[in-house]
Design a protein around this nucleic acid. Structure first.
Lengths: 110, 110
DNA sequence: AGAAGTATTCAGTTATACTAAGTAGAGAGG
DNA sequence: CCTCTCTACTTAGTATAACTGAATACTTCT
């Protein structure tokens, strides 16, 4: 699926929050997870900017740990604010998804 | 539902395309339709910029007609390119929606 | 030494929704 | 007549988020 960029706005950050919420993880792994999920064109630069944004918004806790495979990794976990943000994200998603579904089937023209 | 802005990126234009595809309509009416659909915070400026963009991308045909209620209206219909764009939009939406659903339930961590 | 895989950073670009202000026509009320 | 409200469109500027592309650096294998 090509050129999903615009439709991912506001969605990708939610995906990253969800992935982090499942288990402590780091940027490179998140990229691989998104790719295997189906978002194949999401590259590192994109995810790392999201992670830096989450850090700036104080939604995550960070712990640096050495890796046996390469440079040290920055592991992320959600703090309470992050969990709230994630919940709020899914509420918004469900709202929009239901509205889009309504529109797709046939909106009852006013 | 507050602050849906970012999540509407790439989605709102598709909504407008879908609404136009149902019947010939004009900006002000499209705003009212989006509002009644549930997108209550979408205002005129937003929709008109989308309509100008659709015009620039040559996805619509335009006909100006007088109104009994106020200034003349610009009526929009989709041309073939617009219909293709709409179909492509729904393909993208379905793709993302299914992936999001997958992620929400529980992604099978690699 | 060099290449490939792992891992992160960051300056700059682009696309899109939104803000805010303006223009304008028609009808209603004071 | 003046003002307000509803209808209807335009547009310059802003904010945000994904993406691009280049750089840095550690480890392992050849």
């Amino acid at each position: 699926m090509e050129n999903l960029t615009e439709m991912l706005k506001g969605v990708l950050e939610g995906c990253v929050l969800e992935i982090i919420s499942r288990k402590e993880t780091y940027g490179y792994e998140i990229v691989k997870k998104l790719n295997s999920l189906g978002f194949e064109d999401v590259v590192e630069g994109t995810v790392y900017t999201i992670l830096l944004r989450l850090e700036k918004k104080k939604l995550v806790e960070i712990q640096k740990k050495p890796s046996e495979m390469g440079p040290p990794r920055k592991f992320y976990t959600l703090n309470t604010a992050g969990q709230n943000q994630l919940q709020s994200f899914w509420l918004k998603w469900d709202f929009i998804a239901s509205k889009m579904n309504e529109l797709k089937k046939s909106y009852s023209g006013q």
